[in-house]
């Protein structure tokens, strides 16, 4: 405090005057890389365009088409189901692994490294590797991951769990290690059972980790794209009587991508509208979830 008073007037003013110099590059990068494309993206969702430089404003038509699209609604349902299932599986298993690896068993560090490793492989590569693994097994049963939407769904869940458990595990380990030793000791002295200690002391104390992990796995589940593209690409399709396919394992992000590139110029705006709806959805779900889990956190 003392230092601030003595040096404050001489140093603070020039520092403040130069603040733009320090802030500038970051703000500029943020605007160029995020704010401007974001605004342009929203504008384009109201346009019909082939190239983004000559877009033609058409109002809410794109949103109407997007909401009327059966494949988009199906993708939403599929994605929501996938996000919930993967959220539960990833977090329960990651927490269990983290708990096991903080009990001081031999080789903990090796296990942590090994469990974390799948996370270092890119999604596309992972998708192709797993499609080979799944098909090696499924061919014995005369089927394929591309032929049955249930297989496709669980294939995606296994893939994403395998990839993300290690990452969430690291966060949980950090949280578990931060649980104050004295609280655990006090619980023991007070005669709390193992389960009681776990639910009344450990869990409330790792709530910040749970918040961040559930947030990450939920939004990751909704945003999943490359694994989806590489593993199933939306197959199998059911072909409706009108001849249009509904892609059984297509998730929202892939649906948007396919709308943008698979069809012609009249659908680029529709894809853009879907992307805006997608953003609102993911942001809303993320915020609601953050709000609810935050309330359960305890102050140490």
């Amino acid at each position: 405090m003392k230092r601030k008073i003595t040096g404050g007037y001489t140093l603070k003013a020039p520092m403040q005057r130069c603040s733009w110099l320090f802030m500038g590059p970051v703000v500029a990068a943020f605007i160029i890389g995020f704010v401007w494309p974001f605004i342009q993206g929203i504008y384009l969702s109201f346009c019909k365009f082939q190239l983004i430089s000559d877009a033609q404003f058409i109002g809410f038509d794109n949103y109407k088409t997007a909401l009327a699209d059966a494949s988009f609604r199906h993708a939403f349902g599929f994605t929501a189901l996938f996000a919930i299932v993967s959220l539960i599986l990833i977090n329960v298993i990651a927490f269990a692994v983290a708990y096991a690896l903080t009990q001081g068993i031999k080789g903990s560090n090796l296990f942590r490294t090994v469990f974390f490793m799948p996370n270092l492989i890119g999604g596309i590569v992972l998708g192709y590797i797993w499609s080979m693994i799944f098909d090696g097994i499924l061919q014995r049963f005369g089927t394929s991951i591309l032929l049955d939407s249930k297989l496709g769904f669980w294939g995606l869940v296994i893939l994403i769990a395998w990839q993300q458990i290690g990452y969430m595990m690291i966060i949980y380990i950090a949280g578990l290690q931060a649980v104050p030793e004295d609280m655990l000791e006090a619980a023991k002295i007070d005669g709390a059972s193992r389960w009681q200690t776990f639910f009344k002391v450990t869990i409330p104390n790792v709530m910040p980790s749970i918040t961040i992990c559930t947030f990450l796995s939920l939004t990751n589940g909704f945003k999943l794209f490359d694994q989806n593209l590489a593993l199933t690409a939306g197959q199998p399709f059911t072909i409706g009587p009108d001849g249009l396919p509904v892609k059984q394992t297509e998730m929202l992000a892939l649906n948007i991508y396919n709308t943008f590139y698979g069809q012609n110029s009249s659908s680029t705006g529709v894809a853009q509208a879907k992307a805006v709806l997608f953003f609102i959805l993911v942001a809303a779900i993320g915020l609601i979830q953050l709000y609810y889990t935050r309330r359960k956190e305890v102050q140490q």
Partner: peptide, 19 residues
């Protein structure tokens, strides 16, 4: 028409048929 989407649907249908 919409060549990529059209062919993708055909591939999916042929996969079911091949099996």
């Amino acid at each position: 028409p919409n060549v990529d989407d059209y062919r993708a649907a055909l591939v999916a249908a042929l996969n079911q048929y091949n099996a």
